[in-house]
Design a protein around this nucleic acid. Structure first.
Lengths: 176, 176
DNA sequence: ATGTGCATGTAACTGGTTACATGATTCG
DNA sequence: CGAATCATGTAACCAGTTACATGCACAT
């Protein structure tokens, strides 16, 4: 098995590490910054929450409200924090998708300074490698190959911006 | 049903619209520019190819080579081109993942000029909307909330770069 | 009245991954 | 001599989506 697995679980766990939340809150939060990553659906959030609870990584605080379904506020446990740390600290591995990087960014608070820096550095080298690959490949310049041209220039633009951000951030992080 | 479905199939079909390819080639190609999108595995590519063939959207040219497994070169058919066009032309819809946008970028050659512009424009407004949302949300500046701060600044940086690229590209496209 | 947001959940489905099997060839 | 690349395929598994059910509150 490679790297993925249990994705949503850990993402949720990471959010709960910041504040207690309900399943609905999780969705709202993720939807708000769900631009680069797609927002998980309720059909995966609610079951994930229950699984986390059964594993003792979170606890529920059920706020029964007479009428409508009880509001369930989930909080992370100590065991949860430990599990999260283990997961977040381990490298996403080369070829990891953008999503993996973003998840660790969101979860930055649960990482050690060193761990965070390591992740950013790894990402940096990945992006740099890709940039080199793009630059290296013969760009057909003309010809019908519009798709290739657009993709190239798009990737170049994004890669440049991301590298700049990584450098800036890495700098701030170390000099502070 | 929303928008996804048959993803890999159409992505592959789009690649075949440019040159005939084998399943292995598809993988190689996608892996090369598989930085923002994750590369599909053989376990999905080969079955997809067969499905496309059975639907008459591609044809196979089997190059039997005495010893090792025959190399299969797939080519798109007319029906395939039509199907691809229909798929690519239809909007990915709001809240579409980055992947959907990128797929259409890669497949630019199969789109009409107008269709391409429409996609870019739509993407532009989506990114812009998100940018506004980020800017609008109170950034906690200080406090432990490192994750939120980093995510914000990352998203801001990428959004800005993408908007710039979109504007530039949209410009080039119209003035030519 | 109708729809949107709040709030939770379940069952069916399915797209795609993981892991396996096979085997020649080239590179270090 | 072992590792990587070429090259194809299958079967088991699973994470996540889609679609549904329920029901109040509030705005239009």
């Amino acid at each position: 098995m490679a790297h993925s697995s249990l994705d949503v679980r850990y993402l949720i766990l990471g959010l709960l590490a910041q504040h207690p939340m309900s399943g609905y809150d999780v969705r709202r939060f993720l939807k708000a910054r769900g631009w680069l990553i797609s927002t998980p659906s309720f059909g995966s959030i609610y079951p994930a929450l229950r699984a986390l609870e059964q594993d003792g990584l979170v606890t529920v605080d059920v706020v029964s409200r007479s009428d409508r379904p009880p509001r369930k506020s989930y909080s992370i446990t100590e065991a949860g924090r430990r599990a999260l740390q283990v997961w977040a600290e381990r490298s996403a591995g080369p070829g990891a998708p953008l999503k993996a990087f973003l998840m660790r960014l969101i979860l930055a608070d649960s990482l050690s300074q060193a761990g965070l820096v390591a992740h950013l550095t790894e990402r940096r080298s990945q992006v740099a490698a890709h940039q080199a690959a793009i630059e290296g490949s013969r760009s057909p310049a003309e010809g019908g190959d519009l798709g290739r041209r657009l993709t190239h220039s798009y990737e170049r633009a994004i890669a440049a911006a991301e590298l700049a951000w990584l450098d800036r951030t890495l700098n701030e992080l170390s000099s502070q």
